[in-house]
């Protein structure tokens, strides 16, 4: 168990269809699209690794239920 000191997002690459709506929506520009393919043949997106505020905008912009997980600051994780 740990309390996160920084917000972050985690992208399940194989659930991402590369639509980029999260990238368009992100106010902090912290999501990028990878040049590599996932197992479904899409270019998945990925968190840049820093700058996420945990606002959740990308989560609601993303059409896929399980593709993005947003951890806000203070979230308790395993």
């Amino acid at each position: 168990m740990a309390v996160l000191e920084e917000a972050k997002i985690v992208v399940e690459h194989d659930q991402c269809k590369g639509c980029t709506l999260c990238i368009i929506a992100c106010p902090k520009d912290v999501i990028i699209q990878l040049s590599s393919f996932n197992t479904k043949g899409y270019h998945p997106v990925e968190y840049k690794g820093e700058g996420c505020t945990g606002c959740g905008i990308c989560f609601y912009a993303c059409p896929e239920p399980g593709a993005i997980i947003v951890y806000k600051k203070g979230a308790v994780v395993e």
């Binding site: 639509c19 993303c62 059409p63």
Partner: peptide, 20 residues
């Protein structure tokens, strides 16, 4: 095989609405 992704096309709004 794919039991994790929806059948919707990339960028389709159904997924968003499902989530809401």
């Amino acid at each position: 095989e794919d039991k994790m992704n929806t059948h919707y096309c990339p960028g389709c709004g159904h997924g968003n609405i499902h989530k809401y």
